[in-house]
Design a protein around this nucleic acid. Sequence first.
RNA 1: GGAACGGUGGCAGAGCGGACAAAUGCACCCGCCUUGAAAGCGGGAGGGCGCAAGCCCCGGGGGUUCGAAUCCCUCCCGUUCCGCCA
Length: 431
Amino acid sequence: MLDARLLRTDLPATIAALARRGKPELIDQLQTAAALDSRLREITSERDTVRARVNELSKEIGRLRRQPDAGDEAERLATESRAFGEQERQLAEDHGAISAQLRDIMLGLPNLPSELAPDGAGEDDNVVVKGPIGLPDEYPDHQLVPHWETGAALGILDNERAVKLSGAMFTMTRGLGATLGRALCQLALDRNADAFEEIRPPSLVTSATLTASGQLPKFADDAFAIERDDLWAIPTAEVPLTSIYRDEVLADTDLPVRMMAYTPCYRREAGSAGKDTRGMLRAHEFDKVEILALATPEQSPDLLDELLGRAEATIAALELPYRIIDICTGDLGQTHHRSFDIEVWSPGTQAWLEVSSVSWFSDYQARRANIRFRRTGQKGTEIVHTLNGSALAVPRVWAAILENHRQPDGSVVIPEVLRPYMRGADVILPK
RNA sequence: GGAACGGUGGCAGAGCGGACAAAUGCACCCGCCUUGAAAGCGGGAGGGCGCAAGCCCCGGGGGUUCGAAUCCCUCCCGUUCCGCCA
């Protein structure tokens, strides 16, 4: 959520910043919000004046009641106060209605893009800032095979039966395929354990938790809901991790807080019907290791670099060809202030696959989640900044390994760094 | 799932219709003392909105009242006991 103060102190600059997302309707909403906010302040002031009068009278009545010889002056004041009470009720009602309207708009408005984010209208204007790295000039034929074919041939991917269990867009790995997925998670956790606390959060969360990180109310259709119990399946570990310190005040000496979690992730992929339906590229359920930080505004730029660096190093260690994309203003996610994607080349599908997304949310999420910090020796509190990134998302990396590391005989060589997690296997051979 | 008891400031914990933003202790900040620290002594300090006056915040919501942390209703959460269980 944006800071409501921007509406009154810095409206033109806020409009200019939001305009960079290229969605004119957002500007209309922002202006409506500014009008509501100013009306709200008028009503608040009126209401408070009436309340002050009621409080004053009540105190006086109390004082009179305690004096035995005060007569019926107290009753007279009580009658007067009752009339103010009526007024107050009306004003409070108006106040409630307007602030609800304002809140609805504010919850729907996206974050302001960073000044550093490149301008652009959409995906096509994203900027490649690094790479491609490790991309061969030419791929041999045996590596141009899509992972679903190799996976099926090796007996490590069984999506036909996954569909029997759960329907379309669910996947199932077996044997060394299952081991490979788990090994990837373990690798990602181990590589970041030097600085990040490992968390195993719940995978089902309340609406309040999903609202705090920005998925609700706008993206309700994208999440799996367990309606009977009013719970949601998390689309990413970002959701529970962001809410861990919800409604808390941290000390600046505790920052940055670094956390990581391996969790399953659930996405309805509403609107993606028919897209990437084969293989592992898009599924309702997948595994991911997420790294996340809570920080002061000053710490955030360095942390963004660090998170990106960590995600990149893991991909590089897996000997996969990759590039890094700087997301432009028109393609920036709702909650994002600045964002980078890491993409891996899939020779089997002839496409760049997004395998990691590293983002800085400025104070947008933390304001929703009400996560604050106190500077030592200073009064008051400030909103923290949040950042996160996928340390490793299993399915697409799994797919890229099957394609990029496929041998002429149809086997798949396990990258060196994964072997300690593969029970000694260094290659996946046909059955 | 049933029963009982609870939810108050960073934490612990009093208050149970009016003088309560709320005792007290711990933690915190500033002094004094000390070579330095600890202890001790003195002082300070909750959060939010507002230019301000002022208003709001004692789990959430609603009600009673001139007036609610305090009474009533409701929901949520916690602890303990019972039941059930990986």
